[in-house]
Amino acid sequence: MPDKFITLNNVSKSYTRGGETLKVLDQLHLSIARGDFVALMGPSGSGKTTILNLVGGLDSCDSGSVHVADSEVSAMSRSELPAWRSRHVGFVFQSFNLLPVLTALENVMLPLQLTPLSAAERKKQAAFALDIVGLTDRASHRPNQLSGGQEQRVAIARAIATDPAVIIADEPTGDLDRSSADEVLQILSRLNSELGKTILMVTHDLVAAKKAKRVLELDKGLLVEDQQQEA
């Protein structure tokens, strides 16, 4: 592995639901290189989304450590994590998670409010991000005026607006038809190949997984397969 950009060392994570403890990750070791495009696959409950949440600083592990670039995410306090997330990670969710009361442009501008950019600069950068996903002409549309594919492209634009190094995508094509899913996957591939974004994508879709450079198969919290793919 040339460059350990993201590392999970001996990570364990359990959840307690209804008095029952469920071990989701069991002493997992994982390294991801800078600029990699990794697809995480596996059955439900195998720990895929938990890995995304740990890498993205949305959740904390019970034991072990999570490093992203030079930061030990697992050692950060709850108050430190939001600022770190805003600088280093962009999220793309299965159900898009755009704010319905804002236009596409305003949704993309939202994370830029955490930067020192002026209002004009934020608008310019958000417009640029929308241009990257090919939705300049939909900037003033609300999410309910967009198709599912367009909504997910706006969500991608929002994820890259602050120019984070890592993009975390949780089943980004799960709610899309094949054509829209292909568009989204194409954009993610471009972000990886042209802009060098490190992408961590959970998917059940084999077509989507084929776009990744590396596919990791998880089962019951354990890494059962690690496969590099040809570009």
Binding site: L58, P82, A83, R85, F91, N97, L99, L110, L114, R158
Partner: peptide, 14 residues
């Protein structure tokens, strides 16, 4: 509440 989660994911504090 979900919006709060989205904002937190984007880097806003709770």
């Amino acid at each position: 509440l979900q919006e709060s989660g989205i904002l937190q994911a984007l880097g806003f504090r709770p």
